[in-house]
Structures are given as C-alpha cells and as structure tokens.
Design a protein around this nucleic acid. Structure first.
Lengths: 347, 347
DNA sequence: CTGAAAGCGCTTACAG
DNA sequence: CTGAAAGCGCTTACAG
C-alpha cells in the first residue's frame, strides 16, 4: 500500500542499495544520482519504514515514559521536561499513563515489544512484594534487550537493578515545613496522606513525621487521613477530619492537589484559611499560586527531573550515582500564627 | 542481544512456525507442544519483536496524538479521553507535544515512519496557506499508508481530506456568555484573544463577537488584547489593558488559563472581581473552580472529545459526519452587575 | 498437527 | 561510485 524504497529506486533508475545510501547520506554517492533519488522521494512522498529499520538495528530510538496519570499536573510537568530534552535528540516519547499495576505492566510489555531504547518510570509505586518482583523481572528483560531504565521519584525494585535514579530531596522540604510551622506556633497538625500502600505516600508521611519530630511537634495518628492524591481526595479527607471533630491549627497535605481540596472543604465548613487553619501543600504545581489564599508549599523541580532522567539514560554505559534534586520551600499566604482552639471555635 | 523466536523454538524442540502458532494462538497445536513452547517462552522471558510483526502487517497498532502542549490542562483532559478509550482496545498512544509547526511536522513524519494506524491532531493550527498545504500533503501520505486521521477542535486542512472531525459547539457557549453579560448590564467588554494567526484564536474571537452583536453589545477593538493562551499571556494582556487606561466592566478570555492570569493582574492592580470587573473564561479546566472568585466559564467536554476521536478512527471505512459536542455554560462567582465607570474609579 | 520456505522493507558488508 | 545478495525477526500460505 505505502510507497517502498524499491519504488523509489525503480523510479530513479538505481539500485535499492544506492537509494538507501542517498537516504542515509552516510556514503559517497554521485551528485547526479543523489538528485535523481531525491526527486523520486519527493515525487512519491516516500517515508522510510521505521520497523524495517528497527529490525536491522535491534532498536527503535523510542523513549517510553510510564507514569500514573498524565492529567495530574505533577506528571504533566515531568513530561514536559522529558519531551523537551528528548526533542533535542529528535526522539519520540511514548507516554504511558497507567492508573493501576496491570495497565502499567501491559504498557511496559508493549515498550519491550517495540524495543524501546529508554524507559523512564515516574511516580508512586505499590509497596507489595509481588509487584516489586514482577517489575524487577521486567527490568531485567529491558536490560537484556539493551534498553536503559531510569526511575524518577520512585525506588528501584531491586538494589541490583541496573537503572538510573532521579529523586527529590523532599526531606529538606519537610524540614522547612516543620520549622515554619513551629515558628508560627502550630502544635496540632493534621496530615492528608496519599493512598495507603504506595511508596510516595509512605515516603512523604515519614518525611513529615521525622521533620516534625526534630521540631518537637507530635504527629497524632488520629489527625492523619488517607485519600487519593487529588483535589477530591483532599476534600473528602478534610471533611472526615472536620466531622470527626478533630482539633488542629494547621493542615499539611501530601500534595498540592489535596491541599486545594482541603481549602475548599475548609471554606465549605465555614473555616477561614489561614486565620482558623493554616494549610501547606507539596510540589508547587501551577494551581498553588492561583488559589486564595495562595498556597504555601514546597517546589519540586519537576521538569528538570524529566530532563535529567533523559540525560541519565543517554549518559555513559554505567549509571552514575542517583541524581538528587534539591527542593525549595515557597512561603505564600496560607499559613498564619496558630490560634488556640477556643478562639477558632468561636470565630 | 534479545531473545528471538528462534531461541524459543530451539529450546522447545519445535520449528519456528509452530512456536509462532503457539504465540498467536490462532491455529491448532497439540497440547503437549503448546506447553513446551509456553515453558520455553517463560524460561527465556521472550517478548515478541513488534517491528518484525509490523513489517508483515504493514501496520503497527499505534495511535499518534499530536497536540500543542501536554502540560496545558486543556490537552491533558483530551489526552485522558484518548488514553482511556485506546486502553480498552489495548492500543499504545504516542503523545506528541509540539509547540511549533516545525516540531509538529517532525512528529507527524515520525508517526508515518512508524506506520501509525491512527493519528489524532488536536488543538489550534496556524492559519497560513503554506502550513495548510504542508499538512494536507501529510494527510494524503497518512491515508496512502492506510492510517486514519482525525482532527479534534481544529479545521481539516482541505475539504477533500478524508478525515474524521470532532468539534465543539462553542458558538452556543458564546451565546450564553453574551446573554449573561447583557442580563448583568455589561456593555463595555474587554477581550483577551489568543495569539494572532491561529485557528482557535479566530474562531473564539469571532464566536464571541457574533454572540455579543446578537445582544446588541459592541466589541470595541481597542478592548481586544492578544496573548498566549496561558496564565502569563492573560496576565500580561490584562496589564496592557489596564495601563492603557481602558474602561471595561467585564473581561472575557479566550480560555480559562488567560482568565486566571487576568484575575491575578486585576487583583495586583487593586481591582476587585466581580465588584469592579466581571471575568469570564472558556473551557472549564480544573483550576477554574479553585480560583477566587470561582470562574464563570463554559465547559467543553474535553475527555469525551478524546474518546470520540478514537471511536471515530475505528469506526467504519468512511468517516461519518463531524461529531459536534455540546458545551455548557457554568455560572460561578466571577460575574456581577456592571458598575458605571465612575463608581469603579472611586472604589 | 507440524515444518521448510518465501517474503515483509530495509541496511550493509562484499565485489566490482 | 554502484549493485547483487544476505539477513534482521517474524508470519503464513503451501506441503505433508
């Protein structure tokens, strides 16, 4: 159906080999011959078949990006970084947005079938061993076919896995949050954690708890509510906190989206931010600056993480040490001094 | 390097043909033979080479999605619809985020090289003829290799192009906006248009102008400012309007992102929304409900558009009529009755 | 039910 | 500088 190189060669009156050489431009060809072939290519609107080419090279030049949800601005930002760096290398990026493990593995297998050169897996992972084992097997398979694997903001499934690693220094972000909270006199902190059993949930929860502890602020488990890492998840979790009658002067969320949901739930409950409750997010996705009050949060260099992941994949044979990206505390308008409980109640 | 079907066949002690038949499961094979092959596949962790397969089929099963900017929530939402529908068909979606025409064509050519089955092109396009001609040529090329082409929220490059079309009935959204504005007594409307020379800019600008005219409200060209379809674009355009000393009681933006920027610029200039100025967006992306005041806007069924585009691509041989999706006016808190100029000035 | 062989569209030594 | 031929990894008539 489609035009083949044989068609081009025939029309130009040369051999297949010569036509191929003109296309690839990596071999001396007489000027006149070149022109004839180029004309035939134009006349026929010939486009090389990437599959035939990949068969020879045992590789496709494709970059696979596996992530939890492309419509989450967190991943959109990482994707932007991946795309822009891949583009400078003229590489195709296949984005695989996989809400669950099953889909994720299906995508990874598709990437293996297509002999992707590079596979970048970003974001939270389930913590169970079956998942980890299955992923480790895929990692071996990818290495076996010569692909480069990079994990971004998630742990490698196995210490021995030959893979690149890009991570955020979120611990320092949590330290900044804890100090900020302490400086404003907060001692009753509610926390909106992510869904239980996922790596990001645990890492962030632990990070906040440890940082608060350094500041001698307890993190009462009754003030911790789990939910999806979304606006709705944050809204619902906050409502549960409120209707349980819990007292807290500040609320931290596992990510900005949840914090935005918290803002809405608090408002709907008649609580003012930051007068009655202070709120802090995490990530600094675009919406954080546009809510009212503007959200105090921690900025993760997401696009840079994407870029670095690609760079790591194309770096030398062996993977260098993990790339650890620093984060920045961004104080805005959603935190104020703690008010004692009674004052809030009567507000 | 990677395991091939020949390795599997050898380990199972059968021929290539038999091994292939077991893998494809579309041909009778003795149970014992099947088991031997399946064991070999597992032992060797064999994954078929999609390129070899595509060479036979002259197709790859790949869906290409070409859009302006994946980190724009407008496209993120469309993408979600495309992905979820593609997933039910177990298809890979390649997302090509192309900020300019050059990149876009590079991506389309990559998709042609990979023999993509389906190419969906979404969003604004340049209006010049050279672009249109070049795109029409690619469209012919794609058809020539048996690919299905669908345009989403953008015109086809040529009336003869065999392509599917998914569009929004934005005219009715603008009619609702115009009536809403009239009912609130607004007669001096500022408009934040998109970048000049792009199809979406023109269509939306014309749509608003026509609807306002029906309501006997003029759209003064001095109150129209162009800018990128982003928060920053909206912020800058609004600042220009303000510093030019223009008077307006309401401001409409080509999309929500620009409207969010306008909200910020208005606030920074000491103008209150909606008391001093009413603001209306377009699209209803998630941020619209989380700004303060919540943004009055028009909801486009973006995810549905993505789903329908995929469905259209897989529908019968000939493309049905364009799919036209209805939109919905979403009144929220950013519009109030118009105040006469002097009152605003003294506010 | 199983196997030998042709062929998908290209690139690349190998000859000339 | 150019061409004939082998081969990349698979599937599928064609025989048996």
């Amino acid at each position: 159906m489609a035009v083949t190189l044989a068609d081009v060669a025939a029309r130009a009156g040369v051999s297949l080999a010569t036509a191929s050489r003109v296309l690839n431009g990596n071999y001396p060809v007489a000027e006149a011959t070149r022109r004839k072939v180029e004309k035939a290519v134009r006349d026929l609107d010939y486009v090389v078949n990437a599959h035939a080419r990949a068969l020879l090279h045992a590789t496709s030049g494709m970059i696979g990006l596996v992530l939890n949800d492309i419509s989450d601005p967190f991943f959109a930002a990482i994707t932007r970084g991946v795309q822009s760096t891949a583009e400078t290398m003229r590489r195709l990026v296949v984005i695989c947005s996989s809400p669950d493990e099953q889909t994720e593995f299906a995508y990874i297998e598709m990437l293996r079938r297509h002999r992707a050169d590079v596979v970048i897996i970003a974001g939270s992972a389930p913590e169970d061993n079956a998942y980890r084992r299955a992923l480790a097997a895929h990692a071996r398979g990818l290495s076996g076919q010569g692909a480069r694997l990079v994990f971004c903001d998630r742990p490698t499934p196995h210490r021995s896995a030959r893979a690149g690693l890009v991570e955020f220094d979120d611990a320092s972000g949590y330290r900044a949050i804890a100090r900020h909270l302490r400086d404003h006199g907060h001692a009753q902190i509610a926390y909106l954690a992510g869904p239980p059993g996922w790596t990001t949930t645990t890492r962030r929860h632990d990070g906040l708890a440890a940082a608060l502890k350094e500041c001698s602020i307890p993190l009462d488990h009754r003030l911790v509510q789990h939910g999806e890492l979304s606006r709705q998840g944050g809204y619902d979790a906050t409502q549960r906190l409120i209707s349980a009658g819990e007292d807290f002067t500040a609320l931290c969320a596992a990510n900005d989206l949840m914090a935005v949901g918290a803002l809405a739930a608090l408002r709907d409950a008649g609580l003012r931010v930051p007068v009655d409750v202070s709120v802090i997010g995490f990530d600094d996705v675009p919406v954080a600056q546009d809510v009212t009050p503007a959200l105090t949060t921690v900025r993760l260099p997401l696009a840079e993480a994407g870029s670095r992941a690609v760079a790591l994949a194309f770096a030398g044979r062996d993977f260098a040490d993990p790339v650890r990206l620093s984060v920045r505390f961004v104080p805005r308008d959603s935190v104020a001094d703690a008010h004692p409980r009674t004052q809030r109640q009567t507000a």
